[in-house]
Amino acid sequence: MPYDVGSLMLLNQFLVLGAALFSIGVYGLLVRRNAVLVLLSVELMLNAVNINLIAFESALVTNAAVGQVFSIFVITVAAAEVGFGLAIILMIFRNRRSANVDELDLMRW
């Protein structure tokens, strides 16, 4: 960049963006019936958390890189969770021929 961008962006613009992404993810989690789409909404929420972490790190932390390291961990755990979640969805699909979460109610009273 041809100039120093320090102190030109508000912290709140990133926090509100993160909050908006998180609530869109919550909407997706509640509304979607297909299990894969529910996982996609969870990915949106984790991404919102990452934006928050890195915005806070730039604004508040003086010893560097805590927020970035933690968001790398979040990305890694999200990848592990997606891998395992898709394996479970695959088994459900094999047994019941549909990935509809509303039909998974065998354990309800």
Partner: peptide, 10 residues
């Protein structure tokens, strides 16, 4: 956080 700014460098 009101109008706190982000302290990024270039």
């Amino acid at each position: 956080f009101g109008t706190d700014t982000v302290n990024t460098v270039g």
